[in-house]
Every structure is written in C-alpha cells, then in structure tokens.
Amino acid sequence: MKGFLSLIDNLGKAVLRNVEEAGKILLLFFSVLSWAVRPPLKFKNIMKQMEFVGVKSIFVVVLTGTFTGMVMALQGYHGFRMFSAESLVGSTVALGMTRELGPVLTSLMVTARAGSAMAAELGSMRVTEQIDALYVMAANPIQHLIVPRIIAGIAMVPILTVVSDFVGIAGGYFVGVHVLQINEGLFLKNITKLVTLNDIYNGLVKAACFGLILSLVGCYKGFNTRGGAEGVGRATTEAVVLASISILVADYFLTAIMF
C-alpha cells in the first residue's frame, strides 16, 4: 500500500514537473517575443547564429536528404513493381520529402547539430557566470543571446528544408532513372503532376515551427543550466531529447491541421 502511494506520489510529481517546465518554456517564449520587437536587434549576433544554424548545417542536411531520397526510391520501386506502377516512385519520393521527411529530418539534424550546441553554449556561459556578467553590464541576456538564436532557427530551418527537399528528390531521381531504369519522362511527369505548391509550402511552415521548437528548447535548457560541467552535459542531452520529441509530436498535430 505504501509502495503504491509513493508510486502515485512520484507520478504526480513527474507530471507536475513536466507541466511546470512546459509553462516555463512558454514564458521564455513570451519574453523572447517581447524582446524580439524591442529595438535594437543584435544584427551581428543574428548573422552569426544564422551562419551557425544554416550555412554550417548544409553538409549534413544535404547528406541525409540525398540518402533519404535514394532509399525511398529503392524501397518504393520494389513495392510499385508489383503493380507495374514504377513511374510513381518519383512522386512518392517528392511527396514524402516535401511533406514529411524534408522538414522532420532537417530539423532533427539541426537539433542534433545546433540545438545541442545552443544548450551547451548557453549552459557553459551560465556556469562560468557570463550570463551574470551580462546582467551586471545592464545588458539583457534574452536580447543578446536567445533572440538571435531563435530568429536564426525560425529563418534557417525552412531554407535548409528547401535544400533537403531538392537533393532528396534529386537522389530519388538518380536512383530511379539511372539505377532502376524507370522511364525518365514518366518519372518527372508524375512528380510535377502529383506534387502541388501547397505540399511544398506547408512543409516549410512545419519547418519554421520546428526551427522555433528546437531553438527555444535548446536555449531554455542551456539558459537554466545548474551544476557545473556535468550540468552542461545534462542540459545538452535533455535539450536534444526534448526538442526531438516535441518536433515529432508537433509534426503530428501540424499534419493533422494542414493536410
């Protein structure tokens, strides 16, 4: 009986902790909003973050995007061959990339690369008192550190997604047409026929939401780091896990709303 009660007690505490955390992240988002509209914006910091989140993630995003497209083409081919509809492989790859895999894979890669770095960077700034130093110099850390990162996240993830969509389809094209010998004309025609502008744009809206989630979670975890170098490590891990889960959950709801 006692064990049962303590189980319920722990369960309740865990729920409460999560709710509290969600609330804190939301409050951070509100204060980011208020600072984002308060000049001056730190353009130099924004550019720096955009370079870090966007430009430096190109390689990994191109790599994952290409291989995803290629694998989808290969897998789809075996399925469609049973119905002699091999030419639909192209549109399957294109729809899959633009709607789902482009935004989700890109933001997961950026989470792993940049979201974790945000948490680690802000975390080490917290434990080495650099954030306190900002306060002491009458400068707001949210304005200097968090707003640029979140702007970079929202702006760069969609652009990376465009790149990922494109190389994914290109990878599918390469495997489909040159390796599996699917008719090139039909392959391309089915893509342009079945994919609509909305598929691409909704994917980009998703990507922007994911960009917000991963940068917000990364900054939140880093900004609230406690406990030295170990704390920084913990914050980084937690940021990646929480951001990845949030992205997948958000993906479900965004898909339900959009398509």
Binding site: K48, E121, M125, T128, E129, Q130, D132, A133, Y135, V136, M137, A138
Partner: peptide
C-alpha cells in the same frame, strides 16, 4: 535597475569573459 547597474563594474571569479 539597469540604470543603477551602470554605476557598477564587476570582476567575476573566473573573469566571465565572453568566449565567443
């Protein structure tokens, strides 16, 4: 508070220089 803080300078234990 920010106005008051401009009267202050503070040297932190490890320096707290911005390492970026």
């Amino acid at each position: 508070l920010n106005e008051v803080r401009k009267k202050f300078g503070m040297l932190f234990q490890e320096g707290a220089l911005f390492d970026s």
